[in-house]
Computed example of a mutant assay.
Amino acid sequence: MMDLTFKKVAGSSKSAHQRVQSGGSEVGEVWREQVNVIVSKMTGPRRTALRWRWFAKKAGTSETLGRHTRAALLLGAGYKTKAEAIAVMRRPV
């Protein structure tokens, strides 16, 4: 795996918004947002809480990774760590 470089996006309204580069070419971008996620056990009543989650977008696409997936519907949108978001972004289509 190649080394990744992160460049802060100046003037962005998104928290921790960064461009991800690998070998001099842009791979995509990552950022954090506060979203409601389910924090209750599956057997108990459904409770949600506001948590910070990571989102990603591949270069050249408009799809935000971490928003419209089955896991996002069941557990809440986004990825717990920046590394998870980058791993999904780097997967081949």
Rank of each mutant, 00 (worst) to 15 (best):
P45R: 13
A16H: 15
A85G: 04
T43A: 11
A77N: 04
G11Q: 04
A77I: 00
M1R: 03
G11P: 03
E84C: 01
Q18T: 04
Q18W: 01
S62L: 10
K58Y: 01
L50T: 07
R67W: 04
G60T: 06
A71T: 14
K58C: 07
Q21C: 05
V37C: 15
L65Q: 09
R91G: 13
R53C: 10
S12A: 09
K80T: 07
A83N: 09
R91I: 02
G78D: 05
G28Q: 07
R32G: 00
N36Q: 12
W52T: 08
G78K: 12
R53S: 09
F6N: 01
M2G: 05
A49G: 15
E26D: 05
A16S: 13
H68L: 05
D3P: 01
V39R: 07
M2R: 10
P45H: 10
E26P: 00
L50N: 06
Y79W: 10
E84Q: 15
E63S: 12
K57W: 01
A49P: 02
R47C: 03
T61D: 08
T81D: 09
V9T: 03
I38C: 14
I38G: 01
R70P: 07
V93H: 12
S25H: 07
G11R: 07
V9E: 02
T43P: 00
H68A: 08
K14Y: 10
V93Q: 13
Q18Y: 13
Q18I: 00
K58A: 08
W54R: 13
V20S: 03
V35W: 04
A83E: 14
S25Q: 13
G44H: 11
A59H: 13
T5F: 02
H17W: 03
V35A: 08
K57I: 08
A87K: 12
P92A: 07
F6V: 02
D3A: 07
Q21Y: 15
R67H: 07
V37S: 11
A72R: 06
G78S: 09
R91N: 12
L74M: 09
V88C: 05
A49C: 02
E84M: 11
V9G: 00
R70Q: 15
G78C: 09
V88L: 10
T48Y: 02
S40C: 05
T69E: 10
V39A: 09
K8N: 03
S22R: 12
S40T: 05
V30E: 04
F6T: 02
V88Q: 13
D3K: 10
G24R: 11
Q34C: 06
P45L: 08
S15E: 04
S25I: 08
E33T: 02
A77W: 00
W52P: 04
K8H: 05
A85W: 06
K80M: 03
K41Y: 06
R46L: 12
P45S: 11
A49Y: 00
M1N: 04
F55G: 09
L74R: 14
D3E: 14
G60C: 06
K82M: 10
F55A: 09
K41E: 14
V39Y: 02
T64L: 14
I38Q: 14
A87R: 12
L74T: 04
G76E: 00
A87T: 11
F55V: 13
